[in-house]
Design a protein around this nucleic acid. Sequence first.
DNA 1: TTGCGTGATCAAATCGATTCGATATGGGGA
DNA 2: TCCCCATATCGAATCGATTTGATCACGCAA
Lengths: 346, 346
Amino acid sequence: MQARVTLADVARLAGVSKASASMALADSARVAGETKERVRRAASELGYVPHAAAAALRSQRADAIAVVLPHVAQHVFSHPVFIDLLEGISAAANELDLSVMLSTARSAEDETSAYSRIIRGRQAAGVIVAAASVHDRSPSDMQRAGYPVVVIGRLPRSSAVASVGIDDIGGAKAVVRHLIEVHGTRRIGHVSGPLDHQSAIDKRDGYVGALAQAGLSMNPRLFFEGDYEEASGRRAAMALLPHLEPGDAIFFSNDQMAIGAMEEWRRAGLRVPEDVRVVSYDNHPMSRHASPPLTTVGADMVGVGDRALRQLHRLIGGETELAPIEFPTGLIVRKSCGCLGEDAHG
Amino acid sequence: MQARVTLADVARLAGVSKASASMALADSARVAGETKERVRRAASELGYVPHAAAAALRSQRADAIAVVLPHVAQHVFSHPVFIDLLEGISAAANELDLSVMLSTARSAEDETSAYSRIIRGRQAAGVIVAAASVHDRSPSDMQRAGYPVVVIGRLPRSSAVASVGIDDIGGAKAVVRHLIEVHGTRRIGHVSGPLDHQSAIDKRDGYVGALAQAGLSMNPRLFFEGDYEEASGRRAAMALLPHLEPGDAIFFSNDQMAIGAMEEWRRAGLRVPEDVRVVSYDNHPMSRHASPPLTTVGADMVGVGDRALRQLHRLIGGETELAPIEFPTGLIVRKSCGCLGEDAHG
DNA sequence: TTGCGTGATCAAATCGATTCGATATGGGGA
DNA sequence: TCCCCATATCGAATCGATTTGATCACGCAA
């Protein structure tokens, strides 16, 4: 392994002091333009790469941010959604010259220790927390302690933590309204996500709201609390089956549960959408290939990741009191609701 | 933000010097047991968390590793596969008290700069590179420069870089042999991945090998080089269509292309597996829900990630000349090959 | 010619932990 | 009683960059 090139080497080659070299590379106004040029040339000639730890130590700031995925979130974000988030975060981080640390915690203790190690050890200047449960106090604790935190997902209005979320209420409303207005459906059931998660709460609220606006009310027999996993969709399918009447529709709070349920129903001889209409949420890549292709609700998760990182960057930069950001959703109409126009190809 | 607790504070509370405190927390044999205990108590009482940058600077080693996903790999690993890898890496890293940095590069220049920033800046003690192209020199360059590198994916035998891969040759052979031996198929085509990637090369070689062993040879009209994306599966479907004869089979080198192709064929009135048998590779979650469910080849990608991290850890620890590791694959028989036994549920 | 102001450069302190040669302490043997 | 050795602890140097008060050089005005 070749010897490290240090700032002292660069300074020596450029014929200036370490101080000037450092300031030159930081493009400070205190050094003359000609000197800057000379230092920069020396640096690139030697292939100088600053030692991140040394810089971080002296300047007391890290050029990395952490993405924390609490274990409770592992199934809240579907894989593709999480990849999109990471992609958005990572691209924005590249642009802002920040490194991204990934921290997945498997248990609750791991979680606190991961938080501590990363934040208090100053490995990262701030944290993006993905999909915390509404009971999770860590984000607000950390924020109160003065650490920059951005939560991905909508937060209860009372929270003071910066967040970048999705308008799940609006998304759910839109897809339920589609059932009511386009298909004239009047009995609409719901398979929710785990109701200690804001996303699940919001989708349920949107669903209830859309019903109410149409003068309908929800039928408790057509409600099932799932956990976003496919298996719970299958369970929901069986639980709802005895109460389904011709022309009913079910709104699943994610695609995976809808897909599991549809397979279960097909096995039971039920046809979608002829016997029961189905709509869902997430626009998971799989939803396009389901049979029938799912009518669902999507959002720009890459954009969410991007904005989350930028918000965090502003917090790190000293800004405070950032208003929550909420991304809009888009209705993706396919066949499972009873619309025939679009093919799986679309 | 509360003031940082530093090692000096801990030492003061414990009534020892910084030196002893440091050695106590590192569980060194040079400090007495009773002292260790006192220091540990003081540390936990104050909530001491060591400053990672300071430790890294002095000891000249980082407690983080980097996962680099070159831009060329973005579509080589499907999302679920990549998530599994990350999960394995991340879990093992937690266990070994290492942090994980994620670096995705969008362009080739970004790539070198990302490598440099992370490695030469000593942010990470080593790197796991996912799915480099066979033309990518960076891994071996870095390895030659003395940096610990583990590549995920099989490498050409000549390479001296540590790797953790999948036995794609064996996997491809197994699934093609299934077509030959169980279904008696004699005309078997192949839609490969991009042939500058080892995984694509290996699957093609496995396919050719299985044919040869059965005394069959490949028909060039039934070959198509795709790029692992669904759209290229669709293109392959159209390109192969005119040359398909009843009873033919096509081996797709990943599930996404197979799914795209099957949809295209269905639209053209072709039935799978009645008119054309289909097998593929990856055991993507979607493959189970395809219609018909895909017969495919899977591997333990979480395990691969885990082993990759552990190999890297050994390299960092000074071991050298680690033999390449190759994970076995498993054949997952569903309906697309013509087998009827298993249902999508399985 | 001298003095002063300004912009460029420099030397030295600093960040927080680790490391190692030096020192203190205490017990056992002569 | 005295000395020596082993063991436990300590002081100070160190990692590499950043930062800031101090110094230097130079040009211009008096």
